[in-house]
């Protein structure tokens, strides 16, 4: 996936994840947007249950559906890959 830097959107998505998943041990500003979101020692301490919450929140907030037609694992790799995906889908504006 081509990287298209959009630090504002990256911060917005990080804040959304932190708020919806009730993450208390780290602030949005502290998160490395290129770090893997899942796997051992991920910064946000996310698990596979959190993945579905992120997918549903992205659909509610930006109107994008992440389904089998898309490379889900690549899209959910990091905050930056989520930014790239929303940019590619032209879905960077909140719908709610």
């Amino acid at each position: 996936m081509t990287e298209k830097n959009n630090p504002e959107l990256a911060l917005e998505i990080t804040k959304l994840i932190i708020e919806k998943l009730n993450i208390l041990h780290v602030t949005a500003e502290e998160v490395n947007i290129n770090s893997p979101l899942f796997g051992d020692d991920n910064e946000l301490d996310l698990d596979s249950i959190d993945a579905i919450e992120i997918v549903v929140e992205l659909q509610k907030t930006y109107g994008v559906r992440i389904n089998n037609e898309l490379p889900v694992r690549e899209i959910l790799y990091s905050i930056q890959s989520l930014v790239d995906f929303l940019t590619k889908e032209n879905a960077t504006k909140k719908i709610i």
Binding site: S48, I49, A51, I52, V55, I66, N67, N68, E69, V72
Partner: peptide
């Protein structure tokens, strides 16, 4: 959640794959 989303279902318990 795992059975619907996490076991190579393509999401939503294969319903998205059937839609495609």
């Amino acid at each position: 959640n795992i059975l619907l989303e996490d076991q190579g279902t393509g999401g939503a318990g294969f319903r998205y794959m059937y839609a495609t």
